[in-house]
């Protein structure tokens, strides 16, 4: 049992690129769900369309990197418009079904063997990341430890991604903060509570919901692009529905409808997921494991964190729907 390894794994994930992807995606969900009450269960779809927009532009069409970024972001905006026009006038559950279906459609199409020439099939696309990595000013990785007791460590590429990523997170939070303190944000929060009241005061509810859907989708798109840049490949299965659910979990941990909620939530989410994963991996590993094989094998140990995550999400929603730091009076999750 090496607690240094466990702490290292937990902290490196919590501060590393994976948490950044979640933070960005959850910031988008926060705009959708936290502030506006839109049930977008297809955040993975916004991510995948932007990610493959970039990857296909650069790899398949051989166009410049920046054009790829542009294509990706335009893709996310268009997806929001296409999803919003039919569903935003309907009851909240319809948006949920349509977004979840769309994100699965996108994932399946991007991974289809029939479109391998364009999207690369189930292995996805690689070879678009060079312009991004060329900008990396770091020549070495980073590792912090006391003696052999590890605290946190990052590779050179991760260090670059962390720099870019947290900058993106900070900018996104700034945008959300500036918007949500404005009368525009007030309209969104009012829509979350009661659309008809807002409508009766002469506000075009549909237009506001659409703006929120696009804005949150753009954050999702940024998350998708960042995700494939930090790992160097665009793989369709990364963008499955479970991802969206995890992002919701991260958002709810930190507290919906708070600017920093998704960020704090993602950090805690990954600290726990990696820490618990590493703990049970350590506990079941080695020749004489702490937990004997007949209770838990090494394979099973990776599942404990998911079991706990499921349980945690349930308990959180039941006992603290406002998240760890939220104020219950301000959050309207219990609305319809």
């Amino acid at each position: 049992m090496d607690f240094g390894t466990i702490l290292d794994a937990a902290l490196s994930s919590a501060l590393g690129p994976q948490a950044i992807v979640f933070a960005l995606a959850a910031i988008g969900l926060n705009v959708h769900f936290g502030y506006t009450g839109l049930l977008n269960f297809g955040q993975a779809g916004f991510m995948s369309i932007a990610a493959f927009g970039l990857a296909v532009t650069v790899v398949t069409w051989d166009l410049p990197f920046l054009v790829g970024i542009l294509v990706g972001m335009v893709g996310a905006v268009l997806l929001a418009l296409v999803l919003g026009v039919p569903t935003l006038r309907l009851r909240a559950d319809y948006l949920a079904i349509v977004t979840i279906a769309t994100s699965e459609i996108l994932r399946l199409v991007f991974g289809a063997v029939e479109f391998k020439d364009t999207f690369g099939g189930s292995n996805g696309l690689t070879g678009f990341v060079r312009p991004y990595q060329n900008l990396n000013p770091y020549s070495d990785g980073f590792s912090l430890h006391i003696g052999s007791f590890g605290i946190v460590s990052f590779s050179k590429n991760d260090l670059w991604s962390i720099t870019v990523g947290w900058l993106l997170v900070a900018l996104s939070c700034l945008v959300v903060w500036a918007l949500m303190r404005s009368p525009w944000g007030r309209v969104l929060k009012s829509i979350r509570e009661d659309e008809d009241a807002v409508r009766s005061l002469g506000k075009n509810v549909f237009a506001y919901k659409m703006q929120a859907l696009v804005l949150g989708g753009v954050f999702g798109g940024i998350a998708g692009i960042f995700h494939i840049l930090k790992q160097g490949s665009a793989v369709p299965t990364d963008f499955n529905t479970t991802f969206t659910f995890y992002a919701y979990a991260a958002l709810l941990i930190g507290g919906a409808a708070r600017v920093l909620g998704p960020v704090v939530g993602s950090i805690i989410f990954w600290f726990l997921i990696s820490g618990i994963g590493s703990f049970f991996s350590e506990a079941t590993g080695g020749s004489d494991p702490v937990i004997p094989d007949w209770i838990m094998t090494q394979t099973q140990s990776s599942l404990v964190r998911l079991i706990l995550l499921g349980l945690g999400l349930m308990l959180l929603m039941i006992f603290r729907p406002q998240g760890i730091f939220g104020d219950r009076r301000e959050i309207a999750i219990d609305g319809r």
Partner: peptide, 26 residues
């Protein structure tokens, strides 16, 4: 809107707000 304060409820009612337009809100 019970999760908004009374004064925020009132402000919401005003029409033609520049701050309610997406691009000027920030």
């Amino acid at each position: 809107l019970s999760k908004l304060t009374v004064i925020e409820n009132m402000r919401l009612g005003a029409t033609g707000q520049r701050g309610e337009r997406f691009f000027s809100a920030a």
